[in-house]
Amino acid sequence: MIGDLLFRTWRGPSRLLPLDALRGENAVGGRMPEITCPAISPALARRLADACPTAAMRCLGGTTTPDLGRPPVGRAVAELRSPATDARWRSGRPQVAANGTDESFFELDYALCVGCGRCAAAAPEAVTPARSLPICGVQRARLTRRWNLATGAECAPPAVPELPRLDRWLGRAVNIRQLDAGSCNGCEAEISALTNPYYDLERLGAHFVASPKHADLLLVTGPVTRNMEEAVRQTYAAVPAPKLVVAVGACGCSGGVFAASPEVTGPLDRIIPVDAYIPGCPPTPAMLVTGLAEILRRRRRAGRGDADS
């Protein structure tokens, strides 16, 4: 029996995707938005912000500087009945202008985006589902793109510090421990897919391990629920240094659609230090591979001290 199965496997064509193909069109099927118009007008910005149920797309007043360290609450989510919860977030929430007059920036925050497709439906001439999303495995501030509404042009991405240095002797191999901090299991489904014959993550030297004590990298999904907070802290403590933490999915990056719940104490970077973020709801396996490759590349660069591109 097993011989028949193996014979079939050998006879069938290989499905392994070349790394370049993964990096090139990594976001197909994830419905992250891509802005296709050269400039964003105030009217378009308002239309997009109105269509977005999670405030991943938002207009900002000229006088407020958003605090990117703390995620804003989605508009739908902010209509919570609990004033205490809302107040908890409001202090860190960018002020959204009520009319078009004092808005001077438009922001697209991939950390909050769940790929619902409403923006692309509202303004098909300006937004399409992205086929490629290079900002995977980056730091939190890099997930937010910003346009100046006076000129319509996109602002330069913020400067971010390098990732911490890891010892060189780790080479290219990395042991990954996946930790679910209260996800919906959507991210788990896509992370599991990394081991299938299309992606075969092990060819990159990455390997999923059973214990945090064996891990170099914690791959964390979910918004961090109250009931999981202590387990997240203990798991992080169990990973030997040097260690990397990667937040996965809209929930991992920002708390996502669950950010405003009193049962959620995250997002993850409130609980433990996070080195890199992979957005998406869920991220496609190719986005996960791109993100992990980016993290390993940066780590190698930091480790060797040279400046490969």
Partner: peptide, 27 residues
């Protein structure tokens, strides 16, 4: 352990905008 208070989060939401949240009950 994964209790996220989803039913409470849904309360108060616009019925037309709730699908992204219900899609995240069991992914």
């Amino acid at each position: 352990y994964t209790h996220k208070g989803t039913e409470d989060l849904l309360a108060g939401m616009d019925a037309a905008l709730a699908t992204p949240l219900v899609e995240s009950v069991s992914g």
